[in-house]
Amino acid sequence: MHRFANPARFGRLADRVSPVLWVLFGLSLALGLYLAFFGSPPDYQQGQSVRIMYVHVPSAMMTTGLYGFMALASATALIWRHPLAHMAARAAAPVGTAFCLITLATGSLWGRPMWGTWWEWDGRMTSVLIQLFLYFGYMAMWNAFSDRARAANAAAILALVGVGNLVIIRFSVEWWNTLHQPASILRAGGPTIDGSMLWPLAAMVLAASAYAGLMILKGMKIELKAVRLETLMENQAAPTTSYRLDLG
């Protein structure tokens, strides 16, 4: 894994992977959008509004997936001290936040015609909202310290504590929700999805993943440049100390 620790090697790898991801992203997005609008039928219950799903579900998957990625990268950084892992985690955070916001917004838009309300304190929506707060906390942590190493460490610990908490939150919110109100009819059992809807959904998930990958690589490259700049400015001020030990 440390093979990619070298920034230059990482840069070359990123430059090679990025175009592939761009092509993958473009193709799957085009395919997904075409299928979503023209290649799939309206739902027999929900009508045309079901097409929101093709944005909503991939975003929700990315929201959780990227938080998981962040936690994994943070663990890698803390345990194996891989120098790029902190950067990968940091780069994933804004992307995850964006997907989280999209999930909430599209969920709200979808909920209005379906449930007759913009917001419902149901288990899933609530836990996505809490996840947004966790993302905010993580990013705030990164920006709160003047010392990069300290910020990286604190943010990584928070991400790990957060991911454990996320599991508990998911569970507790579901539990709390069923305690207070019966599960929504639409959710009960979860209608099995038809093949004609599965293909556009799969394409959109692929597009979202490719996009997330692209943005993480880009974020890491920016981060690497920022680190290089900081190192330059610091070393100019104080070069590494040499020393002489005189034991008499």
């Binding site: 906390g137 705030a140 942590m141 709160a144 957060g162 908490n165 508990i168 939150i169 507790s172 709390w176």
Partner: peptide
């Protein structure tokens, strides 16, 4: 910062 990070983490104990 403390409020931002700690309140989300406190939601499960709050619920229970």
């Amino acid at each position: 910062l403390m409020i931002v990070i700690v309140f989300p983490l406190m939601i499960p104990p709050l619920i229970f």
